[in-house]
Each structure stands twice: as structure tokens, then as C-alpha cells.
């Protein structure tokens, strides 16, 4: 099981995939906003989205799991 974690503290502003979607390695899956910057989060490896753990507007800390792949 692979996970995508928040690279820094911030707010989720876009969720680009949903459960069941196939994603490629390096693909942007979530966009956060932090320090007024858009911060895209990528899937490190290819897989199928098992669960999106955040909603738009959620605050996340660095290291929080935002998405689970299988």
C-alpha cells in the first residue's frame, strides 16, 4: 500500500482524483495552499486510488496522509 502525504502544513484547495482512479507515478493528485503558494502533491508510484482522506478546505500538517493508493 502506498500513501501520499502532505509535504508541508497547509490547506487542501483541490482534490484531482477520486477513489478507483488510476494514477501514474509523479502525477499531481492533490493541490494544497500554503504560504499563499499552490503546492501540488504527487503520487510517488503508479496505482489505483483506494481512499482520499481529505476534503477541500481541510487543514493538514506536514506528514499527514492525504491519499491511499493500492
Amino acid at each position: 500500500m502506498k500513501q501520499v502525504t502532505a509535504t508541508m502544513a497547509g490547506t487542501v484547495i483541490q482534490v484531482l482524483v477520486s477513489a478507483g482512479d488510476n494514477v501514474g507515478a509523479g502525477q499531481d493528485v492533490i493541490v494544497m495552499e500554503s504560504m499563499k503558494m499552490e503546492v501540488p502533491l504527487q503520487a510517488e508510484a503508479a496505482g489505483t486510488v483506494k481512499e482520499v482522506k481529505v476534503n477541500i478546505g481541510d487543514f493538514v500538517n506536514e506528514g499527514d496522509i492525504v491519499l491511499v493508493l493500492e
Binding site: 509535504t7 508541508m8 500554503s34 504560504m35 503558494m37 499552490e38 503546492v39 501540488p40
Partner: peptide, 10 residues
């Protein structure tokens, strides 16, 4: 590098 962590300094 604005592509990673917005280019913010850590």
C-alpha cells in the same frame, strides 16, 4: 524550487 513545498525555505 516553487514546484516543491512552494519554494518556501525550511
Amino acid at each position: 524550487q516553487p514546484r516543491v513545498k512552494g519554494g518556501v525555505l525550511f
